[in-house]
Write a protein that binds this DNA or RNA. Structure first.
Length: 276
DNA sequence: ATCCAGGACGCTG
DNA sequence: CAGCGTCATGGA
């Protein structure tokens, strides 16, 4: 069925933009096992076509199809560099992922590259996620499944020193740490709570808030965004968290959405950045 | 071989 | 609070 015809570039949003690491492409279709089961997406002339087991409204929300990106662009129209970055990638959207998935994937992301984050995420899903039976798609393991893993088993998947972080975070969630509660909490409080989890520093916390908790102002600053803030916005000479604060103050309540366009522009070499 | 990757953590000033 | 070494892993 067609779930919408809003601007959405599936490959860019689900795979290339590195905000999510568990979609796979098979001959022009993009698949993942979401909460209800396997889903395959495809671009057609009539819009985005989806097959599989899903709730259409939930899938639209996951893909952020209900947000007016034209209005977002208008918000940044007066900031030259921001407007240009957004114009570079029409069809890029910021996903609304389950917070647990964002938490696990971005704990894995620490000091790691995108290809390996994707590889580790896949290994984790195959090891203890729900088997869809097609040999391709696996569900994302919940905190119960992850907490039940031994550190040795996770290290065997090549997650390295992140193994105890994953188990520790899973246990905290099982003990009552509410990921869903972060959504309706002020940004500062939600961020502070997240950084109390093992393996979660300022940057990973911002990724979880932006990609999994609906905090559109959360502004992750990695190496690429740091270079870009320096060269495009003159924000430099301070720590990464301080850079994030200044960027949020400059870009406003949807700063995080813009961050995704800036990140991708920097990473793709679409803008000129000087050496460190 | 050395450096880098969507960093976090623990220890020292 | 800031600075710095360390932590696995694999590709360039």
């Amino acid at each position: 069925m067609i779930i919408g015809n809003e601007p959405l570039d599936l490959r860019l949003t689900l795979i290339d933009s590195a905000q999510c690491f568990r979609w796979t492409e098979r001959d022009g279709r993009f698949g993942a096992a979401l909460e209800r089961g396997p889903v395959w997406l495809r671009q057609t002339d009539g819009g985005i076509e989806a097959e599989g087991d899903f709730d259409p409204a939930a899938l639209r929300r996951y893909l952020d199809l209900d947000r007016d990106y034209g209005a977002i662009a208008a918000e940044f129209a007066h900031i030259d560099q921001a407007r240009r970055a957004m114009a570079l990638f029409p069809g890029l959207r910021v996903l609304n992922q389950p917070p647990w998935e964002a938490l696990v994937c971005f704990i894995l992301s620490a000091n790691n590259n995108v290809a390996r984050i994707r590889s580790l995420t896949d290994a984790l899903c195959r090891h203890c996620g729900a088997d869809c039976g097609d040999g391709v798609l696996y569900g994302f393991p919940g905190p119960e499944a992850l907490a039940a893993c031994t550190e040795e088993a996770l290290r065997a998947l090549r997650v390295g020193y992140r193994a105890p972080y994953l188990i520790g975070a899973a246990r905290r969630v099982l003990e009552g740490f509410s990921l869903d509660g972060l959504r309706d909490m002020p940004y500062d409080e939600a961020h502070a709570r997240l950084t109390g989890l093992p393996g979660v520093g300022d940057k990973v916390a911002d990724c979880v808030l932006l990609f999994g908790c609906g905090h559109a102002s959360a502004f992750p600053v990695d190496v690429w965004v740091a270079r870009l803030l320096r060269d495009w916005f003159g924000i430099s000479g301070c720590s990464r968290p301080a850079m994030a604060r200044r960027a949020r103050a400059l870009l406003g309540p949807h700063a995080g959405l813009m961050q995704q366009f800036l990140f991708h522009a920097a990473r793709m070499g679409a803008i000129e950045l000087s050496e460190d």
